[in-house]
Design a protein around this nucleic acid. Sequence first.
DNA 1: GCGACAG
DNA 2: ATCTTGTCGC
Length: 232
Amino acid sequence: MQPADYEHLTPSQAIAYQSELRQQIHIESLDNPINVIGGADISFNKYSETVYAGIILLKCPEMTVVGHSSVISRTSFPYISGLLAFREVPALLEAWDKLDIKPDLLVLDGQGIAHERRLGIATHFGLVTDVPTIGSAKSRLYGRHQEPANEVFAESPMYDRGEIVGIALRSKKNCNPIYISPGHRVSMDQSVQIIKNCIRGYRIPEPTRQAHILVNRVRVEDSGTDKQFSLF
DNA sequence: GCGACAG
DNA sequence: ATCTTGTCGC
């Protein structure tokens, strides 16, 4: 199955495919050092099939931007909770292929294994590219957890029948927690540690935050040029 | 049947 | 996700 063909899948077939991919997930210690970390995100205009995908490259541990790539693509697969990867991975792969240098690890905006079939977008992307990935989501999809204490870096594990699938992390005081889970080829503890090292005073870790700024800028710039949005 | 539901 | 101004709280 190729990502480019995802648009032809029915939700039922997509779910069946996730069940197959699940067999290939590797949650393990990442030994390679992380010199460059990447952040990926997508932006789009409501009701439009045009999607703006981008990947930002940051130097560790400074968190300074050292590169990026972006693409304007199309998607017909709708947003369905639990099947996000089928909608966003194809465009993200296009941006990934355009990168001159690949990061040592990529952070995606969404869940990793904190998913009913352990196939959040971060895990899915990691399997397709065979790259270490971490999922950093702004809201919860799956897993039960207690409210983290209201202090920076307070955390509380997310469970699924006794198994820890992720962690709710208070990345900033007085802000809602973010949900971290390993995607592929990295451990749970490393995922949390890595994300903590990417926090720079904002609720959202730099890789994801910078990626969001990037794709949003690309979208606004294009919307003024896109026929569908210019009235003249 | 009811509530939950990444982006 | 995106649409949007002011406004409450630290």
